[in-house]
């Protein structure tokens, strides 16, 4: 199944793109997806935040086909 992935701020710069479409297996967790992305890109980033369909999720959250997944650093607005 496919999910769309967005990257923001320092993570976008680290990954080198702002979004991509990735094939994952049914039931893949959002943290597994993140690990596979950083392994593929050969980069490291501590304390990544994760959202699915524009809601914060825990690392064990399981992905579904068509989900919009976002990875970003700690927020610094205001």
């Amino acid at each position: 199944m496919q999910v769309s992935v967005k990257y923001f701020a320092g993570i976008r710069e680290l990954i080198g793109e702002s979004n991509s479409t990735i094939n994952v297996q049914e039931g893949t967790s959002v943290s597994s997806l993140w690990r596979s992305i950083i392994e593929t890109k050969n980069v490291k980033f501590d304390n990544v935040k994760m959202a699915v369909n524009m809601e914060y999720v825990k690392s064990e959250h399981q992905l579904k086909a068509g989900d919009e997944v976002a990875f970003f650093p700690s927020v610094t607005g205001g």
Partner: peptide, 19 residues
């Protein structure tokens, strides 16, 4: 709230790491 600041400083452009 998902906002991120990148400051232009005397030491170059730096992402603010935390509030």
């Amino acid at each position: 709230a998902p906002f991120w600041k990148k400051e232009e400083t005397s030491a170059g452009a730096i992402w603010v790491e935390k509030n």
